[in-house]
Write a protein that binds this DNA or RNA. Structure first.
Lengths: 237, 237
DNA sequence: CAGTGGTCTAGACCACTGG
DNA sequence: CAGTGGTCTAGACCACTGG
């Protein structure tokens, strides 16, 4: 705060200050922060202005207020679980000891007409293609076929996917700003049945996934789960 | 507003007034509402108090503000399309000419142990049970079995479901504040296969749905879609 | 120009909490 | 009791919009 940001309203400056104190760990979860009166003294503003900063952060669930007691740093939010459907890509992580995978395909290819259109490429353009089977506790839980836009993830083929999953790598080089899913029940073909190690041809959950980073499509994937696999999605309105 | 609600703060009373004006259609979408100054005169409060009411409603996206211009009734929210998965209940509407349904079951029943626990009832308590098949263009697109908490929708059995769908009725008496979905691929049993008019036993999409209104569970449903049915879900991060 | 919303002040009274 | 957050007032100055 040594250098004042003239363009920012004072309540916003105080918000930034409080945010920084929390993010830097100076004010820990559950700790009491200065009162409105104290902040108004510290920042030489009226109590109403200090209050506004604190109140807006409370509205954002960063702080918790209790009349008579004070204002406290709130528990970290459980990441607004609007939709756990994303989780099935995130739960596949090498930091998870039960996780493993098998790379079936990892190649450069040329874009077929339909796929080119979706990825925003021209027919015949270079693209990357991968097929990976994901296991949890040595049981196959997902067959993943993925077409990747090489303009966005140029080094996709050169990664070591025994250390990081393809989706994790993509999310790192081009964080998804939008993801679209289509869910269907399907009967898997022989190739997929074999890859998933299914004893019989039983119904599977097919998820078609398209991810964007900004206005560019990063990848399109076809994900097949054994029918017993349950996809959770929670929506809080 | 003829009878003042003494326990409610004045800014909250003004919020209620504005909300009512909008919901009753007195103030239509896009119309300008009274200025802060006008409201402070009308309600005999300071401008800061009138402002608080308007500002909080703007934060809730019910109003739109523009400096120098005024405050306007905002476009109805497109229900934050975090997840179009909800749509499959909303797209079933009698205002849709291609839509029709068939009521297979609509009865009072007693709660089996598991269902009672989920609905927050005791085993043997009264509950409502319905089974409805939904058609689009005379093709069955969903088999819906629903258990309803009678404390929340006491008149559930008495509605005319050729005019309003069960879900629409529930959403009207107890707007869902939270909905949870579980998606699985399953093979339907003979009863469902018959009800959906499937020629062969083919894989179906099963959606288990639980909805809350406040802290109470309104209903739990089992929805079965033919495998060809595609469930869309779009997630904007 | 008069009117709008955005920011801000320096006070006030209240119900509530802990010691 | 002194301190907290919740509500509220009667002013103020500002940048901005339209006519």
């Amino acid at each position: 705060m040594s250098q004042a940001i003239y363009s920012l309203p004072r309540y916003a400056q105080i918000k930034t200050y409080i945010r920084n104190q929390i993010e830097s760990g100076q004010w820990k979860v559950g700790e009491r922060i200065p009162s409105e009166n104290q902040l108004s003294v510290d920042f030489v503003v009226s109590r109403m202005t200090a209050r506004r900063a604190v109140q807006e952060l409370a509205d954002e669930n960063l702080l918790q207020r209790a009349p008579g007691l004070g204002t406290f740093v709130a528990e970290p939010q459980i990441a607004t679980p609007v939709l756990e459907i994303t989780d099935f890509t995130q739960q596949f992580s090498h930091s998870n000891p039960e996780y493993s995978n098998r790379i079936l395909v990892l190649e450069e290819s040329t874009a077929e007409k339909n796929i080119a259109a979706v990825l925003g490429l021209n027919q015949g353009d270079q693209l990357f293609h991968s097929v990976v089977v994901h296991y949890r506790d040595s049981a196959a839980v997902q067959w993943e076929e993925c077409y990747v836009n090489p303009q966005i993830a140029a080094a996709y083929l050169k990664q070591n996917y025994s250390k990081v999953t393809p989706q994790a790598y993509l999310n790192w080089v081009a964080p998804a700003t939008r993801v679209e899913h289509q869910v269907q029940a399907v009967m898997p073909n022989a190739e997929i049945t074999g890859a998933l190690g299914l004893q019989t041809i039983s119904s599977c959950l097919k998820v078609s996934r398209r991810s964007w980073s900004g206005d560019k499509v990063v990848s399109i994937s076809k994900l097949i789960h054994p029918g017993s696999y349950s996809l959770g999605a929670e929506l809080i309105i």
